[in-house]
Design a protein around this nucleic acid. Structure first.
Lengths: 245, 245
DNA sequence: CTCTGATTCAAACGTTCGTTTTAATCCTAA
DNA sequence: TTAGGATTAAAACGAACGTTTGAATCAGAG
């Protein structure tokens, strides 16, 4: 009985293993020898097929983000077509943006939870080539959804919406990346530890979406008086409360 | 004129530089030669004073978290003493937990925004020794604040509170770590780019605290019927809406 | 079959990594 | 002033890193 080496071609086997190892250990801590070893391909195959380790990481993401971002645009187009001249509801926009993401976690063919965790962790990676890459991949989708949020929340200052979009991305990114801190918070293994990845994705979706919507629609912040801020900066004892509410 | 090498002793100069470089490039991508070079100390000084690179990272965090966590416990003690038998308001608990954190960003002596960004980025690091370290450092404080949140939200299932605590940690962690994605979302440099770090911390605090509170108090999720879930897992086409609301 | 381009392979490249060693230097207490 | 522990210094260690090379092997077209 021969092995399964040629069931998938070398390129995709490298991508699959790299996706999993980058998720488990991070980009820097994952060596090309770990990847090629586990994929049972020659060390030189990565440089032959992708050019470099950096290019491999980019291709790992491009493979998944191509589907994700195109799907996000299609769904937003559909929603806006249905709504006609009316503005979408904030919940519709969030559902389109984050729901599409979470659906990847339920479908192994789209990367499953492995890719979602990798994405969550890599979004905060400080490496220049990663930040540049994500900026390019996300620019169009973010711009479209930003406009949709502006229209859906006409009474909220645009700057505030931008910040809250940022916070929502953070909640989601972290929720995906970190089973770790969740275990610290929970004080034990999450319940139903033997749940499949698809079930885990559904559970996460059901819990995180209301949280995001609640944060997005929260009362606007009460800013501290600018004069008080200046006094503090001048050396007065800082007030203990950051938020007055 | 002699240099300023001995104004601070070697240990603290290593810690300061390491804190900044770990923040800017991450743990793996920061070499000991970069640290000792910039700190103008001998390469062997890190192993002499701290034992290893891993132990150095731990000490970088211990130095700041000692203050943070003790302050968090003291403030919670005070609040609970004032409240007597009554439960605290959720906003008070959040203010104590996250407000204390954000105050570090305003005070360079406590690490300032450099440390906050390092903390935000490192919380999602997959390295085992880092996760183990944070689990130990955070256990007591998390347990205390979890109990306080349970009491302040008696009608919300504890499991739901745990998840939302997790999401709030994520929003905050990401908000601290990522000026990067914010720039993508904003489409340009954040306004008042020349603001001081202390001002940046205050602005962030004013914006993120209402978001967290809104997420924490959001309506409870409407779970999909368990039977429908099982049908989906059995191979039916997955529903397109992750959240029904 | 033979030729040709694509792919795989083993081996080595030069560099950088964290750590260790041994000697020199500094600082303080006797 | 001098002994002795604490700190710094320069140099080297072996291991692991990403990458490159050149030959071997494969697969499909003529």
């Amino acid at each position: 009985m021969t092995d399964t080496r040629n069931n998938l071609d070398t390129r995709e086997r490298i991508l699959d293993v790299a996706e999993r190892l980058f998720m488990a250990a991070g980009y820097e801590a994952t060596s090309m020898r770990m990847i090629t070893g586990e994929a049972e391909v020659n060390l030189a195959a990565i440089n032959y097929h992708f050019g470099s380790k950096e290019a491999l990481l980019r291709e790992v993401f491009r493979r998944r983000l191509a589907w994700l971002n195109s799907e996000r645009l299609v769904i937003l187009d559909e929603l806006e077509a249905q709504a006609g001249a009316a503005a979408l509801k904030p919940s519709q926009v969030l559902e389109a943006f984050f729901g599409t993401l979470l659906r990847m976690g339920e479908d192994p063919a789209l990367g499953g939870m492995v890719f979602l965790r990798l994405l969550g962790r890599t979004l905060t990676d400080p490496a220049d080539f990663i930040r540049t890459f994500f900026a390019g991949e996300y620019a169009e989708v973010i711009a479209r959804y930003k406009r949709a949020l502006f229209r859906s929340l006409p009474d909220v200052p645009k700057e505030e919406i931008i910040w809250r979009f940022h916070f929502m991305l953070g909640s989601m990114s972290y929720a995906l990346a970190g089973t770790d801190m969740l275990q610290i918070v929970a004080g034990c293994e999450p319940n139903e530890a033997s749940a499949t990845n698809a079930e885990a994705a559904r559970r996460l979706a059901a819990r995180v979406m209301p949280f995001l919507l609640g944060g997005l629609r929260a009362p606007l912040p009460q800013f501290v008086d600018a004069v008080a801020q200046r006094d503090e900066a001048a050396g007065d004892a800082p007030a203990r409360t950051v938020l007055t509410a």
